[in-house]
């Protein structure tokens, strides 16, 4: 596999009316009751723990799975745990039409892949992307492919900085390359 390609089985974060959930905030992703936790290994169990309908997510998810969410994913607080809980579960990628600004930075800086896909609502509405599908995304070219359904779609390619930080496996290593020892 090319090094710019990520693939995995998707979980589409839908509400009861089968719509992509928008504005999922960091308290729904990782509740402030667990902010005192600093061990990565303990964070996974709380992922999506305050999101109605998704509280059993940590038990259901498998290593390498991909999360598909609605716009403004990760709104709210600056807590790194809201990204780290997905790292702890070994989630491969989060796809959303847009992200909370701080959330996006936190993901980029920790070398966790996040990608924007403007057409996501439409793709989900017409069931071109459904939970359980296997997808493949090239984050340099922006080409996405639902392997299960053989449907292609577009994502926004990563910026050079995001790509470089991802390749360096995080901001610290990237910074060291720039001389911030």
């Amino acid at each position: 596999m090319e090094e710019s390609v990520l693939s995995g089985r998707i979980w589409v974060l839908l509400d009861r009316k089968e719509r992509l959930i928008e504005d999922i905030d960091t308290d729904q992703i990782y509740h402030n009751a667990f902010l005192h936790i600093t061990e990565l290994s303990q964070m996974g169990q709380y992922a999506l723990g305050n999101l109605e309908g998704w509280k059993d997510f940590p038990e259901k998810v498998h290593s390498g799975d991909i999360l598909v969410a609605g716009r403004n994913f990760g709104a709210g607080s600056s807590r790194q745990q809201a990204v780290d809980c997905f790292t702890a579960l070994n989630i491969g990628l989060i796809l959303a039409p847009s992200f909370g600004a701080i959330y996006f930075r936190n993901a980029v800086n920790s070398g966790f892949p996040v990608l924007k896909c403007a057409a996501l609502d439409e793709l989900v509405a017409k069931k071109a992307l459904e939970t359980g599908d296997k997808i493949e995304v090239n984050f340099r070219s922006g080409e996405g492919w639902d392997i299960s359904k053989d449907i292609s779609f577009k994502v926004e390619p990563m910026s050079a900085v995001q790509y470089d930080i991802l390749k360096a496996e995080g901001l610290f290593n990237y910074g060291k390359k720039l001389g911030h020892e």
């Binding site: 607080s77 600056s78 790194q80 990204v83 701080i102 936190n106 800086n109 995080g170 910074g175 911030h180």
Partner: peptide, 13 residues
């Protein structure tokens, strides 16, 4: 506002 990776990096750099 930023996360703890950003801020640790900012403390140093």
């Amino acid at each position: 506002g930023m996360g703890d990776v950003d801020i640790a990096f900012a403390f140093r750099s």
